[in-house]
């Protein structure tokens, strides 16, 4: 499509920053597509950033529940074989993790 296209709502470096925060490795092509798509979606969403919401409190929960507490009574834990059974890498009865640096 030729002609005017609106400036992207989100720039490349922001896409990369957000992808890093979310631990998503995106290929350069994916980054580009993501930038366009997110910009498009944000373009639609952006309407909410201009609405008058002064004095309107946020809704975190739609239910009016409070103080849902659990008695401090132990329940059975999983047998270790079950805790580890889906683990891709078991080392010393623990979950293996690659080098961290």
């Amino acid at each position: 499509m030729l002609g005017y296209s609106p400036p992207p709502m989100i720039d490349e470096s922001t896409v990369r920053h957000v992808a890093r925060l979310a631990r998503l490795r995106l290929s350069p092509e994916e980054e580009q597509v993501m930038q366009q798509e997110l910009s498009g979606i944000l373009g639609h969403i952006d309407a909410i950033t201009s609405m008058d919401l002064d004095g309107v409190p946020p809704t975190t929960h739609v239910i009016a529940l409070e103080n849902v507490l659990r008695a401090d009574v132990p329940r059975d834990s999983l047998p270790r074989e079950e805790a580890l059974r889906e683990a891709p890498d078991v080392v010393d009865d623990s979950f293996g993790v690659p080098r961290m640096d």
Binding site: R70, D72, V73, P74, R75, S77, L78, R80, A83, L84, D92, D93, S94, F95
Partner: peptide, 21 residues
């Protein structure tokens, strides 16, 4: 006696991954 958000017993020095759910 138990963890913050589940019923697993707290332990110190038990074999690894024996207090999980």
């Amino acid at each position: 006696h138990t963890k913050m958000f589940c019923g697993c017993a707290l332990s110190f020095g038990d074999p690894p991954n024996t207090h999980t759910c």
